[in-house]
Structures are given as C-alpha cells and as structure tokens.
C-alpha cells in the first residue's frame, strides 16, 4: 500500500499534476531569466510555398529585454512571430492569464498544455498554446495565434543549452497566404505554363538549427543598432 502511494506521488510529480499553470510557467520563466544575452550561429532551411530559397546561414543576437538581431550575408527568411517575442511575452506575467490544459506527449517528452490569453486588448498575440515539460521545465511546442500572421506552430529540440532553455533546433510551421504577383514587377514573358493551382492558404516550414551558442558573455548595444 505504501509503495502504491509512493508510485502515485512520483507519477503526479513527473507529469506535473498538482502544479498550477502559473507554477509550471514560472519554471520556464526562471530559465529564460537566466539568459541575459546570447549569440548563436543558425542554419535556416525554409520550405515555403511560392518561395524557392537556398539554405541560409546567419548569426543571431539577443539581449534582455527585447533586443534581437539577425545578421546574414545572404538573404535569410525567418518567421515574423515566435523568435524572441514569445519569451518576452511570457516574462511579463501581468500581461496574460494562463489556463492549465491536457497532458500530451511530444517527441517522447511528456508535456502539459498551458493556454495563455493576453489581458491587453491590443496584444499582437491572441492566444498562445504552450506545451511544457514539467520535469525539464522546457517548452516543446508552441502554437501561436496572432492578429497579423495567422497561426504559427513551433516545435523545439534541446541539446547542450537545456539549462538556459535555449533550443538547438526550432521547426516553425506558418500559414502562407495565396501569392499575388504584382504584374508590373514580374515580366517572365516566356512563362507560358498554365498557372499553378494553389490553395488560398498553405503551410510552410522553416527549420532553424542553432550552434555555437555564447550565453551571457555580454553583447554591446551597438550590435542592435540598425545598419
């Protein structure tokens, strides 16, 4: 009987039952707050309808509170939402209310869904569904519904920088609206192919693979000044 109680106690501890949404989020926010700044190399692989883009390499810089910069020699396509804005949003606990949801296993990680609703009526984020591993205090999936960018889903994978909550891989799935070609710009006269049939909205994926993280080494504000 004693061992049964012990089992149930451990089980509830592992999957996070008993913890409130705020408590689960706090663990994640504490990890985020450990990071004052970071820089990392990132490889960007995009598979987006209507866009053919080669694999790009870039360097990203972040500094608390919300300074973020992408430095790329070539053209790099990134999602508009979900890079640094989510962590900034989560850090400000007064700006949202969190509701605990179902348990779900994502890539063999047991997570709890936390639905986050902003309290500010002008917030760009309408709803954020965050799947958090309560044992690791890491976000493994986020589904962001935004005013201007539609729905963005982000899957995270972690490796060396788990302790800071910094992923080594992020997979974004974004809504791409039907492409409207400005006729005055595009003049591929030779193109006699019948217009390809596309749905009104298609999904695109952008995979970011991070390497060479430098965390809390100090980054000058000059880095974030626009070119």
């Amino acid at each position: 009987m004693k061992s049964v109680f012990l089992f149930v106690f451990i089980l509830t501890g592992v999957v996070g039952f008993g913890q409130t949404a705020e408590e689960i989020l706090k663990g994640v926010i504490d990890k985020i707050d450990l990071v004052e700044d970071y820089q990392a190399d990132v490889q960007i692989k995009a598979a987006i309808p209507f866009i053919k883009v080669p694999i790009a390499k870039a360097k990203i810089y972040f500094k608390q509170d919300d300074k973020f910069k992408v430095e790329s020699k070539g053209i790099a396509i990134l999602p508009k939402q979900g890079m640094s804005d989510l962590t900034g949003f989560l850090s400000n606990e007064k700006k949202y209310s969190a509701v605990l949801g179902e348990a779900k296993t994502i890539n063999e990680h047991k997570t709890r869904l936390i639905s986050i609703l902003p309290t500010d009526e002008n917030s760009e984020i309408i709803l954020a569904k965050v799947y958090i591993s309560t044992s690791e205090e890491l976000i493994y999936r986020t589904v962001l519904t935004t005013k201007s960018s539609g729905t963005v889903s982000i899957d995270y994978e972690y490796n060396l920088n788990k302790k800071f909550g910094l992923p080594n891989k992020m997979t974004f799935t974004v809504d791409i609206k039907k492409f409207k070609m400005p006729k005055s710009v595009a003049s591929d006269i030779r193109n006699n192919e019948k217009e390809k049939k596309y749905k009104d909205n298609e999904k695109g994926t952008i995979v970011l693979i991070f390497s060479n993280y430098l965390v809390n080494k100090g980054i000058s504000d000059e880095v974030f000044k626009k070119d």
Partner: peptide
C-alpha cells in the same frame, strides 16, 4: 513591393 505578399508572415533578413 516585391516581398509584400509574404511580409505578414515572414521577415526577410540580409541585404536584399
């Protein structure tokens, strides 16, 4: 004008 169709969802970085 060129990237307008995608600007809502994507950000174009680098020297375009």
């Amino acid at each position: 004008f060129v990237t307008a169709s995608f600007e809502q969802t994507l950000s174009f970085n680098g020297k375009i």
